[in-house]
Each structure stands twice: as structure tokens, then as C-alpha cells.
């Protein structure tokens, strides 16, 4: 279970509070206006933004002392998810061993995962030789290899067209099911939330609201959500 214990994020004039929890393995959409703090909320879980007060806990353990790499978290950023000078296979290998000294078994694992996400035979390519959708697949393939219990998606598919995005969400679903991960996905699009997430967190006016069931929330939006949806 991921729990925010009276957590306050603050920087200059920006302020965001959260005080709720969400069970392991859940699918959560994070929605709200730009600049409200959706990405910052994810950054706090991933360890890039220290709370001013309060705690973030995973399975009852405070995450504060853990460095980003040591947290039970995989995060996909909006872009720059792959190192452009490394091959696709190397980029995936980083998920198994950051120093890339892979055993034969680990190499086989990389090949198998490439195959699994539809990138068979593309392991020797550089990211620049991939399409936007293929880059998304590669990043998800690494999430599959890392198999961390929390998967954070900070709009990694924002630049993709609707069809590709739907494809990616289906792949996220597969990855999450296979690894049993809790998924928090930032999105601007209510349709994404309804298609993918059973829970929705509304981030607005300095507060990350507790997760609410997605369908009822959108069927009868509270004033804050209504203001966002327009």
C-alpha cells in the first residue's frame, strides 16, 4: 500500500498537500490542470522532490531515506526515457544491472522482453532509429525487466497519436498485470482515465484529492473537476 501521511510539497509559491492511501496493484489516473503539481506528486514518490513535511510510505515503510534508484519504483518521464548513445538492448539492460555487466541469462532475458513488446531484432538499434511508439515500448520493456511494485507514468505517451496511445495503454495494462504493479498515470485526457484507471486522483488548488472511483467521479464531477473539464 502506498500512503501519503500528511505530506506537504513546497517550493517558492507552490504548495501541494496529500493525505491518503491507495492499495498495491491499483490503477490510478492523476488528473488536473497544468502546474497544479501532478508531476511533482510523482517526483515525490520517485525521490526527486523531498516533502517539506509529512511522509510517503510504501508497505508501511518511510521512503525518505531511500535514494531514487533504491525505491520500489519505476518512473517513465515525458521524454528522455532512453539514453540516445546506448543501443536499445543496452538501455533495457540498465534495468537489470546499472553497470551493464550482464550474464548470459540476463542477456537472454533482454531478448525475450524485446520480443514480448514487439521489438524483436531491434536490440542493436539506437533510440534515434526508433519511432515514437517503439521508444514507448522500449521504455515499458525496461519497466517489465525492473519489475518494481510501483509504476509511475508522467505522460510518457503525450506526444503519440490516439491509436498509438491506446496501444501503449494496453501494453501498460499487460506490464502492470504481469508485475502486479501499482500504476499512477498522469494524464490530461479524461478518456485515458476512464479507459485505464479504476481510481482517479484530482490534483488542483494545492491539493491532491484522495482517490475516487473513476466512473462515478466523471459521471457526477465535483465543482473542482467540473472547472477543469469545462
Amino acid at each position: 500500500m502506498l500512503r501519503f501521511d500528511k505530506m506537504v510539497l513546497a517550493q517558492d509559491a507552490f504548495r501541494l498537500t496529500a493525505d491518503w492511501e491507495v492499495p498495491a496493484g491499483a490503477r490510478v489516473a492523476v488528473i488536473g490542470p497544468s502546474g497544479a503539481g501532478k508531476s511533482t506528486l510523482l517526483a515525490a514518490i520517485a525521490g526527486f522532490f523531498a516533502p517539506q513535511s509529512g511522509r510517503v510510505l510504501w508497505q508501511g515503510k518511510d521512503l525518505a531515506p531511500a535514494s531514487p534508484g533504491a525505491r520500489p519504483v519505476t518512473i517513465l518521464f515525458q521524454d528522455q526515457n532512453l539514453f540516445p548513445h546506448l543501443t536499445v538492448a543496452q538501455n533495457l539492460g540498465l534495468g537489470l544491472r546499472p553497470d551493464l555487466r550482464l550474464s548470459a541469462a540476463q542477456c537472454a532475458q533482454v531478448t525475450a522482453v524485446l520480443d514480448r513488446v514487439g521489438l524483436a531484432g531491434m536490440g542493436t538499434r539506437k533510440p534515434a532509429q526508433l519511432s515514437g511508439g517503439q521508444i514507448g515500448r522500449a521504455a515499458l520493456a525496461r519497466a517489465l525487466l525492473r519489475a518494481r511494485p510501483v509504476l509511475l507514468l508522467d505522460e510518457p505517451f503525450a506526444a503519440l497519436g490516439p491509436a498509438l496511445k491506446a496501444e501503449m495503454l494496453a501494453l501498460v495494462e499487460e506490464v502492470a498485470t504481469e508485475t502486479g504493479a501499482l500504476v499512477l498515470m498522469v494524464t490530461h485526457d479524461p478518456a485515458d482515465a476512464r479507459a485505464f484507471a479504476e481510481w482517479t486522483v484530482l490534483v488542483t488548488e494545492g491539493m491532491a484529492h484522495p482517490p475516487a472511483p473513476t466512473e462515478p467521479l466523471f459521471a457526477d464531477p465535483p465543482p473542482a473537476l467540473q472547472a477543469y473539464l469545462g
Binding site: G69, T74, N81, F83, L94, P98
Partner: peptide, 14 residues
Amino acid sequence: YGRLSESLHLQGLA
């Protein structure tokens, strides 16, 4: 690439 490196625990000599 700072955050990506950190999130992958890529540090030190590697």
C-alpha cells in the same frame, strides 16, 4: 539524464 540515471540506480564509475 540526471533523473533517469538516478531512477535506474546508475551511479559512480558505471
